[in-house]
Computed example of a mutant assay.
Amino acid sequence: MSNRESDLEPLSDRFKSDTPIWNRFSYSQQRTVKTLGLYALLGLILLTILFPLYWMFITSVRPRADVLTRQPTVLPGEVTLANYERLFFFSDFLMYLQNTVIVMIGVVFITTTLATLGGYGLTRFDIPYQDTFAKGILFGYMFPAILLAIPMYILWSQLGIINSYIGLMLAETALALPFSLWIMWKFFQTVPPSLEESARVAGASRFRTMIDVALPIAKPGIVAVGIYSFAVSWNEYTLPKILMPGADNYVITTGIQAFTEQNTVMWNQIMAATFLASLPAFLFVYAFQKYLLSGFDPSDIG
């Protein structure tokens, strides 16, 4: 029976008591129910993700008395920007932000460069046991930052790079590089070697071939590595806390603790700082989403 005939089926036959409830609906009705259910599920997931960000924002614009009430409301009764004023003009938040941005730029640059060169080399050069080596890279991804912090602190102390940008950059790169290198190794496997061979026949060097042929095609993978290394650096707490203990070298994740005192927790300023620290992650992903999505459609790569 066609879908149109199913829609015209007599209601008396469709709603017999022995017919399963789902089968009593026509095909178009079933499709509508499935679509509405999918949108409802996506809406629930989106609400779950965005609600913490919303709660941070409304808490940051509440007066202190409203934050400490026993019956918080979804909408603030009074809105004030005094918390952001104190954050920018009466705290070291801008210094924390500056330190975070400097370290993040270094981590993204070093990680992306090493992962791209390493991934390309693993797929284009004849390296003994290269598959075993590439898969073993993920073994380094298993170690959490807390396990590496103390050995790094001892080594970094001997090298004299404690409380320095370069020391924290190298430490966070060590966290981000294993998975980033594995991503680029897998991605370069999808780049046809025949394209590079054609360029080599035309007289291009190996380096020029990589720059002009392989890297433009691998742009989505490079962006993915950049976003991942950005997230690692921006959100890391353990390594900055141990390797950058000086108050003048705090990043955002460690600097937020400055808004707690012995008997007082300044929730308004903590939420304001956390909200502002969360925005760059959303904006960074939004700005580069087209490069990530182009990885699913070869016609968009270029």
Rank of each mutant, 00 (worst) to 15 (best):
Y165I: 10
A174G: 14
I162L: 15
A176R: 05
A176N: 02
P178Q: 08
P192H: 06
I150H: 09
T190M: 10
M142R: 05
A149G: 09
L138F: 12
S157H: 08
V191G: 02
A171E: 03
T173P: 04
A171C: 06
D131Y: 10
Q130F: 08
M184G: 02
I150V: 15
L138E: 08
L170A: 11
A149Q: 04
I183W: 01
Y141A: 15
L138K: 11
L138T: 07
I166G: 01
P178G: 08
Y129K: 09
A145Q: 13
W185C: 01
S164Y: 05
M142G: 03
A145S: 14
L155A: 13
G160E: 04
S180D: 03
L168G: 04
A145L: 01
T173R: 05
L175T: 08
F188A: 04
V191F: 05
I146M: 13
L177V: 07
A176G: 05
L159E: 00
W185G: 10
I146D: 07
F188W: 02
A149C: 05
I166T: 13
L168K: 05
I166Y: 07
Q130R: 15
K186V: 10
F139I: 15
I166D: 00
P192K: 09
I137E: 02
L177I: 09
E172V: 00
I154Q: 13
L168Y: 04
L138R: 10
G136L: 11
G167F: 02
K186S: 13
I150P: 07
A145R: 00
W182S: 09
P178F: 05
F133M: 14
M152Y: 14
Q158H: 09
P192A: 02
Y165N: 12
S180A: 14
Q189I: 00
F188H: 04
G167K: 08
T173S: 12
Q189Y: 05
I161L: 05
P151W: 09
G140E: 06
K186G: 13
M152Q: 14
S164Q: 13
W156Y: 15
F139S: 14
P144S: 11
L170Y: 01
A174E: 01
Q158C: 00
S180P: 05
D131Q: 13
P144C: 09
T190S: 14
